[in-house]
């Protein structure tokens, strides 16, 4: 297999919807608007879930907070689809951008963190009611989650700072 960055980028460039985005005047702005809608859904629900688990917002039960999780999943799917649209439009400029690479790594870590919480922590905290304290381990999972998503958002906005300039 050829792992030469230029070869990889060239292959991604031909994937759908890359050529369509490059020819269209409105697909990229449309994708950006969708990306922002997705991030509001994702972070809006993560604020409720993570802050409850961290103990900042104890007036509701953990189960009630976790019921907002589907919005995070919908938001993430919207962002994944719109992100793919951006990436295939100019893959080389993303692959050589350190902020983008770090953003992808942090999304991966956030995913592992979410999986770890679901497998190990959720069964222990799901029955915690209003005004009850969550365990320290749940607070750590939630704190890391909120920090990661906010940093991922910042990195997304900082992509132009780290753009190298080729396509």
């Amino acid at each position: 297999m050829n792992w030469d960055p230029n070869f990889v980028a060239e292959n991604f460039k031909n994937l759908w919807p890359g050529p369509l985005v490059r020819e269209s005047g409105w697909l990229f702005p449309f994708g950006e608007a969708m990306h922002f809608i997705g991030l509001c859904l994702l972070l809006g629900s993560m604020f409720i879930i993570d802050l409850r688990l961290m103990g900042w917002f104890k007036s509701i039960s953990v189960r009630a907070a976790l019921s907002f999780l589907p919005y995070a999943i919908i938001g993430f799917i919207i962002n994944l689809a719109s992100g793919w649209l951006f990436f295939t439009s100019a893959p080389a400029s993303y692959l050589e951008n350190n902020a983008f690479l770090l953003k992808m790594l942090l999304i991966l870590i956030a995913g592992v963190n979410a999986l770890g919480f679901t497998l190990w922590e959720q069964p222990k905290v799901i029955a915690i009611g209003p005004e009850q304290e969550t365990p320290q381990s749940a607070k750590i999972f939630a704190g890391l989650s909120l920090f990661l998503w906010l940093f991922i958002l910042l990195l997304g906005r900082w992509l132009p700072i780290f753009t190298v300039g080729t396509n």
Binding site: F36, C40, L42, L43, G44, F47, A64, F68
Partner: peptide, 26 residues
């Protein structure tokens, strides 16, 4: 963007509750 995520995101979540979803959320 962080400010937008907080005000819009939480606004949308509360709206979902007002529409009748997440009844256990007082």
């Amino acid at each position: 963007s962080i400010g937008m995520a907080a005000v819009v995101g939480i606004g949308w979540m509360l709206s979902a509750r007002i529409f009748g979803f997440h009844q256990e959320f007082l």
